[in-house]
């Protein structure tokens, strides 16, 4: 009798652990133990990445709950058997093994094929959106982000131009259509990571790496370095500010006006140096 009680205790114990794990997962978002910010991705591709994540989460959750329910049942069942009854001993089942190999393999294959689309859009040039606006060159250096924008109405050039606009730790982008940055590093390897956009890309010395995304919302989002780059790595923080098209253009004019300030005059944003290019 005593053995049966112990067995049942363990059956309940293991089931309870699984139930607790599921419960914690369910309430996690309410306690902020989930994705950063409001929990949603704020870029179009980020939302697709989240969809993939949730799809996998569902598959994993169904499997987890199924396996634990079966485990609990078997433990309980075994503990309830009369003590004089011998346990059933089986030496494997070929059919069963084939099933539990093929089913997960099928699931993995499905995930591999299903995500290819998102991966290609994220990382393969041919699948990038047809039109996107190269907004800025972002240069990572120990321990800050230096940003160079083309002048209003001009294209971003690979080398600095006299009328470029500069900021530091402050990346401004328009919202509602695809934008791209040219990511570089001045010194060691860094990583451009905007958690709320689900965008992450290493910055590699000597390479100019394009990174694109499309903001879905106006707002300010944290940009951090995600590659241990030295002792100041932890404070290599900046912000990405998503603005409406009009605000973005207005901000750029304003920033250019401030940047070309000569201490005397600012002729309605008309910059002397800009009009005099050879």
């Amino acid at each position: 009798m005593r053995n049966a009680a112990v067995g049942k205790f363990w059956a309940i114990f293991f089931t309870a652990v699984a139930v607790l794990a599921v419960a914690v997962c369910v309430v996690a978002p309410d306690y902020g133990w989930w994705f950063p910010g409001d929990g949603r991705a704020h870029s179009t591709l980020g939302q697709k990445i989240d969809d993939l994540f949730y799809l996998i989460l569902v598959i994993v959750a169904v499997t987890f709950i199924g396996v634990n329910a079966a485990l609990g049942y078997i433990l309980w069942h075994g503990a309830s058997l009369p003590s004089d009854k011998k346990a059933l001993f089986s030496h494997g089942s070929h059919a069963l093994e084939v099933i539990w190999t093929i089913v997960p393999a099928g699931i993995l294959l499905f995930i591999a094929l299903y995500q290819m689309d998102v991966w290609a859009q994220y990382r393969i040039k041919n699948f990038y959106p047809k039109t996107m606006e190269p907004v800025a060159e972002v240069t990572a250096r120990q321990f800050e982000w230096r940003i160079r924008y083309p002048a209003r109405g001009k294209k971003l050039m690979p080398t600095p131009q006299p009328d470029d606009v500069y900021t530091v730790n402050d990346l401004r982008v328009p919202t509602g259509h695809p934008v791209s940055i040219s990511l570089r590093s001045d010194d060691v390897q860094h990583s451009f990571f905007v958690p709320e956009l689900r965008v992450k890309q290493d910055a590699v010395p000597g390479l100019v790496i394009p990174v694109w995304w499309e903001m879905t919302d106006i707002g300010s989002f944290e940009l951090v370095c995600a590659e241990l780059c030295g002792w100041g790595h932890y404070k290599m923080k900046a912000r990405v500010v998503a603005m409406s098209d009009e605000d973005f253009e207005a901000w750029k004019s304003q920033a250019a006006q401030e940047q070309f300030y000569d201490g005397v005059s600012t002729k309605d944003g008309e910059l002397v140096s800009q009009s005099e290019q050879e």
């Binding site: 201490g263 005397v264 005059s265 002397v272």
Partner: peptide
């Protein structure tokens, strides 16, 4: 504080 007495001379060649 230094304030230039004249605005920036046009940036010509």
């Amino acid at each position: 504080v230094i304030h230039p007495a004249v605005a920036r001379v046009a940036d010509t060649p």
